[in-house]
Amino acid sequence: MRGIRGGLIVLGTVGMAYGAWLLLSRQDLGQIAEVVVWLAAAVVIHDGILAPAVLALGWLGGRLLPWAVARGAVTVLVLLGPTVLVAIPVLGRFGAKPDNPTLLDRDYTQGLLAYALLCVCAGVAVALGELRSPQRTVEEE
């Protein structure tokens, strides 16, 4: 165990050092600075905006929603939330090029709404399942 852990730490450190060297040696200073800004911004956006927003949702949901509905709401949040984030580049069509019809060639709003509907159905099913088996909840608690 000790040997494996030591080996992983050495290998990981070498990997990080090699990656850092690649990053610093292949681009100019302005580009490197922008990568650093992105690295910092990623943490700030996740830990400072996204995570607190989800915490707030959880806090509110825990107080306002009945148990079964909260269960459905968590289902919808976990299934739909990440997908909405993933959909941002295509919903905004930011990479679209006027001379390239093979890129971003769907109605993404419609697609996302259809998926959202499926997620809500799953959430309702989970909430109804909860209502029908009250003895399980008691058992879990």
């Binding site: 730490i9 290998l11 990080m16 990656g19 850092a20 690649l22 990053l23 580009q31 992105w38």
Partner: peptide, 28 residues
């Protein structure tokens, strides 16, 4: 994948370099 490049750094070079950093940090 959606061909959206809101940055000035090279995608290929950066994605390649950060892959080693991320997996290295993962091993640690």
């Amino acid at each position: 994948v959606a061909q959206w490049y809101p940055w000035g750094f090279g995608f290929r070079a950066t994605h390649y370099a950060l892959a080693f950093v991320a997996v290295g940090a993962l091993l640690v």
